[in-house]
Amino acid sequence: MAVTVTAAPTMASRRPWPRIITIIVLAAYLTLAIAGIFVQDQSNVADVTNTLQQPSAEHLLGTDGEGRDVLTRVAVGAGISIMLAAISVVLGSVGGLIVALACGLGARWLDRVLMAPMNAVLAFPQLLLTMAIAIALGTGLQSAVIGIVVTIIPVFAVTLRGEALRSRSEAFVEAAITIGLPRWRIALRHVVPYLGTTMTIQVAANFGNAVITLAALSYIGVGARPPTAEWGAMINDGLQHAVSGQWWVGVAPGLALLGLVIAVNILTDQIRARRSADA
């Protein structure tokens, strides 16, 4: 029997270009980050004779107030942002998934007990609580990551819990119950794959947010300590030169951040679009 065509195929989903471009951009960022590892030592070398140089062949993105090469520092910053955002999101998503499964599939009381602290954390604007945690733990990238993880867990927990609850009324989960499958095996075999796409979307979306939050924390002064080439710290540094015309010091790291977040967000959109096309 021929497969029946029920939905009209849309043109947009057929075009491969956006996906290819996104993947190339993300690959470029990874390359930049890896290159950053090799030039890490040079990123903090001050050169007082060479401060605030305009972008040139020698310094593609110019130099900053202490004569450091901005491109080198942007590359190092890429490594820091990508790695730390990835760590935060992986820890946060795994934590959130565990909470969500316990809440969505476990007993009522467990749901209540676990959701209360989640809601309490969600009651804060995310960045502010991250800030508070980072301050309490002492300035540094480590505290920043911990702060981000703590605030990301409830985001994952709430979204995935909703999905897990919805999965309970999905016929294939009910079918698994009528077969006689124990609850924990239903969770692993049926519900976790069911959450897969939502999880992927959340991971991508939160990765972008984590990159921004990390920069914001460093910008305020509770993330990276000064000589570290973190994007937010670099933007903060660039602020004093913005008025006097040395725009590249602050604009360059911000542009790098913007490009990365946009690429990740486009990727998120594509995953989302593919899911709704499948449904």
Binding site: E170, A171, F172, A175, I179, G180, P182, H190, P193, Y194
Partner: peptide, 21 residues
């Protein structure tokens, strides 16, 4: 769960009663 072996069900919507994965 043991007794369920003797009583089974076919659901209305075959699109949602099979795990897509």
């Amino acid at each position: 769960r043991e007794l369920r072996r003797d009583i089974q069900m076919v659901f209305q919507d075959p699109f949602s009663s099979l795990d897509p994965h």
